[in-house]
Amino acid sequence: MSSKNYKRVYVWELPVRIFHWINVLCITVLAVTGFIIADPPAILSGAEASESYWFGTVRVIHFGAAYIFFFNMILRIYWSFVGNRFAHWKSFLPFSREMRKNIKHVLKVDIMLQHDKTHDVRNISVGHNSVAALSYVALFVVALVQVFTGFGLYSDMSGWWLPDLFAWVVPLLGGDFMVRTIHHVATWVFIFFTLVHVYLVFYHDWLEGRGEVSSMFGGYKFVSEERFRKEGLADMPQKTPPAEAPKAETNPAT
């Protein structure tokens, strides 16, 4: 395999990265507090109820994190209209033939671990690959389910109009019990998603060596030079790497 020159490309803009990590934090907090609310631990305490409020605190954290999760999601939707091409809403749905071809490639090479007959550099995605993009769409749908069922359950306790917008969800689904069950079960989808998502990030980082893991911290990915001629990525604003790391620009790897 010939040695390639890689160029640093700014893929994940700062709002995308902030969204990602706030989302990580919110989902973690919401899942942990959610499971505590569903099945509180047995605490045998002689304390009077008037001196203790821990369960109420857990619920406050859950509801607060839910609001942050929700508004964070709204900001990400906004950014999918004004952000760069990798953050754009169009990059999440397989509209083009290339994207549909990419789905086949990823399923074949990365999921089923087969090998392409001919090497095509365009198969290596710069932003999301098309299968990953679909998984984020699916996660977005599950997040919506959580928002609707969560705020639906919460609306009765709230005096604010925002949660009240979701009050219709409870009667639609036939009562609190069903809504709660859906809310609870959907939490597991986030857990399954996280397992697969983190694994695949490591997988791509290990096999492709283009900075998949670190890209969500710094925003940069490394793209082979031959790719630029083919897709005109060079038009994109390139950040010159800091002087103390000159190797980054033309780091010869595989």
């Binding site: 605490i43 109820a49 001196e51 203790s52 821990w54 369960f55 619920r59 009765d156």
Partner: peptide, 16 residues
């Protein structure tokens, strides 16, 4: 929401 045992819930004190 109108239960007189609600303070125990908020305090995390439950009958097992």
């Amino acid at each position: 929401d109108s239960c007189y045992r609600r303070p125990y819930y908020d305090a995390g004190l439950f009958a097992e």
